[in-house]
Amino acid sequence: MRILPRTAESGSYAALAGLAPKRRPSLTPYYFILPYLVFFVLFRLGPSLAGLGIAFTNWQAVGTPRFVGFANFEAMARDPRLGDAFQNTVFFALLTVPTLIVLSLALALFLNQPRRGRAVGRVVVFMPYVIMSTVVGVLWTWILDKDFGLLNVYLNFFGIANVPWLVSESTAMYGIILTTVWWTVGYNMVLFLAGLQDIPHELYEAARIDGARAWGVFRFVTLPLLAPTTFLVLMLTIINSFQVFDQVYVMTSGGPGTATLTLVQYIYTTSFQFQKFGYGSAVALILFGILVIVAFFQIRGYRRGLKGVE
């Protein structure tokens, strides 16, 4: 079944922003949504609200939480580690998000070519995502070993001296980024591949007939029509990048020094290791606020972009 190209306004993101056309109200929708909502409220919304609410208490996981107003937020001003965590997280996101987007799009375009072996390529590129985070961390700690790691041995082969990777403040974050890209690029690629399947073949033909070169086709046909997919991938990648945790937790615990300390790693550390659950939740609330703002501007920018195209 061919899915017809739709105008942006009736599409998902317009609907996401509440622009879908109205229909008659009835009770039926609630029957459909209720089972999920029960689970959602019990196991996601409830615990999340409780968790975020702890931000206004001095809770230590044991005993009754005591309300402390904004004390935890005031304490943030005196906490240099939080500044480190924030900077590192933004740095990680600034490097990881564009890399992941560009690389996964390139891989998707490449593995979308109607040629032999592309299925193998797709499986291989997606495969790292199948491996669990603890294993990824152990494996890459080992590959990035300064003296005998696989990566440095091959870099030596090309005349590049040993990179200290995880044992230097200046390179540790690049080690985490490299691991992240390897681990998650396949997931994004699959989403892009999916988007590419929905671009009508005729449009390419038309562009070809008009004499467009490969770059022109990409610039004026693929890219605009892929915009909704790009938007989705971008959104998920940003959320995941701002919440990077597993790789850091397993590989460096935020070190050396504070070089790879990220916000969620810090939330975990203050909450569980230092038993300052109130403070950890306060940081989580700030992170929540940041992501809401990022998402807001992303949706707005996307809708402006759509209007520009039309």
Partner: peptide, 28 residues
Amino acid sequence: MEFRGRGLLFMIVLSMLFVPIQITVVPL
């Protein structure tokens, strides 16, 4: 389907992606 509060409800559902699970584990 059309129903009251659909947009808001969906926004609430989506926004839970922004809460790190490290915070929700103990209440859960």
